[in-house]
Design a protein around this nucleic acid. Sequence first.
DNA 1: TGCGCACGAATTGCATGCACTTTGATGGGC
DNA 2: GCCCATCAAAGTGCATGCAATTCGTGCGCA
Lengths: 252, 252
Amino acid sequence: MSPRAASKTAETSDKVSVICRALRRAIIEQALEPGAKLPEDSLGERFGVSRTIARHALGQLAAEGLIELRRNRIAVVATPSWQDARDAFDVRIQLERLVVRHLAGKLTKAQIAELNAHVDAEDRARGGSDPVSIRLATEFHILLAHMTNSPILIRYVSEIAYRCCLTLSLFSRPHSSECAINEHRAIIAALVRGDEEKVMSLMHSHLDSVAGRALVAPVPQRGRDLLDILAPYAEEAEGGRVVKLPKAARGR
Amino acid sequence: MSPRAASKTAETSDKVSVICRALRRAIIEQALEPGAKLPEDSLGERFGVSRTIARHALGQLAAEGLIELRRNRIAVVATPSWQDARDAFDVRIQLERLVVRHLAGKLTKAQIAELNAHVDAEDRARGGSDPVSIRLATEFHILLAHMTNSPILIRYVSEIAYRCCLTLSLFSRPHSSECAINEHRAIIAALVRGDEEKVMSLMHSHLDSVAGRALVAPVPQRGRDLLDILAPYAEEAEGGRVVKLPKAARGR
DNA sequence: TGCGCACGAATTGCATGCACTTTGATGGGC
DNA sequence: GCCCATCAAAGTGCATGCAATTCGTGCGCA
């Protein structure tokens, strides 16, 4: 391995990072939906560690924006707003343009093979269970980022890809199923040809269309959190205090 | 405050984030140089908290890439490689282009005043103590990011600005002193005019020149960590084991 | 003098315990 | 029947204690 090793990004010990990885994966496969509660002791019990460790893991995930931590409250999987999602995709596009710019014409044979193998796996997973195909589509982008060998790009692209994935599960239709596989193949081809301009615009439009398919409607808010939907209206009425509601609306 | 509040990015409680802020600031003002040790109990004692809290803060800082955490080892302020620094500036340029694109022509009067006041402060600090002027220059960019009101941009730009600041303290000459104040003023002017293209290219060249002033020589490695410099050579000799060195080279 | 080794001090890894906060339910007043 | 006070259960905030590891130093030996 090169001196500039692609070491894990920070992440203290093993136990903490194991929990982080597990939770990240559960989140992007939608086993944990936005808003799901993550009590420290349940986590600790589930992973065979103490609350201290579980807590530390939650701290890391919160730093990545995957979960939300509020003082004295149970941690929950993040529920990004539609605006957050738009912003995330904007940033992501710029970041991934950088990725493919770094990579154009510089891929080794082994890397090309790895990318092709990954897309083949995406192909096989199509029609299979949704969660897996979503995860694979996301991991394609993360795989690309890793090939840049730039720790910063790796970290940021991974983080934001996970977050985008999270928003997909909120705003996307049942599933428009990433028919993006062909676009992935096109990107690989352009990377191999070394056509920098072309691959950047391919990546740009690819992500644009993913975002487009996902974020069609600014309004739908498929009724995840009734209370939050009403909040803006309540705020206009009085000064930020949410008015008392007739006993209904329970997140879970 | 708007419903989409510019709340602190995650950061559990107060105590942890207080420590984080203090350390961040100490690092960018170069009170803590790259490689400086940060033992948990010293930190805890200094801030009047237990190791648990200090440890948590270190975890957060590590997630931001400001410090390095290795198992069973004392945390140290990060020492980015020259290549890391280049990558960081590349990413930063793209991110901050996004920032000014969002902002062009959309600044309120109050925001314009705030920006001008900040640059005035930079002006006053010029010639004063170096650390303060460095910090102010960095905070100008962070201030801009905050005005986008996009949590993701705020987080990423802040993080990467701090990291760039860190590399400056490693590779920059004694101090080429951010004669960039005029460039800051030019950026504000272009933002007010609402000239999107212009302000993006201004920001681009501004950061390019900051990076250029800082990262002139790919080789200098002003002898901070003798051991790391030798590591690659040792690695080529045998399989990643660093050969025993005659007792010299102590970090401190 | 220079090198290696071993032992003690320093430091981290992690679990547990206690105090405080939030949450939700139950019962009494209107 | 509805609203509010009170209280127990659940959960977090944080400190402390113990085991394991690393670091530094002094001693012995060549």
